[in-house]
Amino acid sequence: MTTQIERFSFAERVSHWTSALCFLYAAFTGLALWSPRLFWLSGVFGGGETVRAWHPWAGLIFSVALGVMFKRWAGQMQLDQDDQVWLAKSHLYAQHIEAGIPESGRFNAGQKMMFWLQSASAFFLLLSGLVIWFPEVAPRSARLIAILLHPVCASVSMGGIIVHFYMSTLAVPGALSAMVHGTVSRGWARSHHGKWFREVDGR
């Protein structure tokens, strides 16, 4: 038997899954509003008018949930010297060649990059989204920028989430369970996040 150690607190898991659900809703309804060819997706979510009414709210709740995560994690997501080396050798990491790759703290450099990518795109999605939400109020010049910025950021963020989704479900066994149950085994912690393991293990 292995002893489990806490990886994500209840608050962290709630904010993560709140943002995840809102993200999925906003992503699929966003695709429906993105192109007439994908408009059929709006039917899955209650029709075009419903989608137009709710997509902004989903985005707003997503922003709040992500804001909670940002506040908790931004400090831990700063890249250090080891992370620079990690990034330089990330192609080895991808091939599961771990020799010479520095141990990670609570988050590895890849996760940190994902965090900043998602935070930055979410920030601009929120700004441009507010402009698109109220076309009759927002000035025309702002709308012209927003209609371009919003899908660009959405594409970046959705592309990132495809990677995030793949890493957390298929590529790294144990990661999904950590975000659902909040705990990981000691062995998992030591091998994936060695520095963090020694901090929390305290021995």
Partner: peptide
Amino acid sequence: FGPQERHDDD
């Protein structure tokens, strides 16, 4: 490359 190795043993 498949998934990363599991390290559940301690």
